[in-house]
């Protein structure tokens, strides 16, 4: 789809950095599940939901 994205493997981070990222993650997704995707800084999708992702990008 040619869409730019950035990602973080939270489980591979060091302890201190992981704590920091988890706090940020919980702000956008209180369930704290993986993967969590934030689209255009507005829409958050937790888990594997290809249709929801396509809708959010449409």
């Amino acid at each position: 789809m040619g869409i730019k994205y950035d990602y973080v493997d939270v489980d591979l981070l060091g302890s201190a950095e992981q704590d920091k990222v988890m706090k940020e993650l919980l702000l956008v997704n209180p369930q704290g599940c993986f993967p969590t995707m934030v689209i255009n800084k507005t829409k958050t999708i937790g888990g594997f939901q290809p249709e929801a992702i396509k809708d959010a990008l449409a």
Binding site: S15, D19, M22, K23, Q31, G32, C33, G46, Q49
Partner: peptide
């Protein structure tokens, strides 16, 4: 369809994040 997390919130990550020593 995607379902909500059933794990109690205080156990979400198995630890209390205010006590990071548990991770070490």
């Amino acid at each position: 369809s995607p379902i909500p997390e059933s794990r109690p919130k205080d156990k979400l990550f198995g630890i209390d994040y205010s006590n990071p020593s548990a991770k070490k």
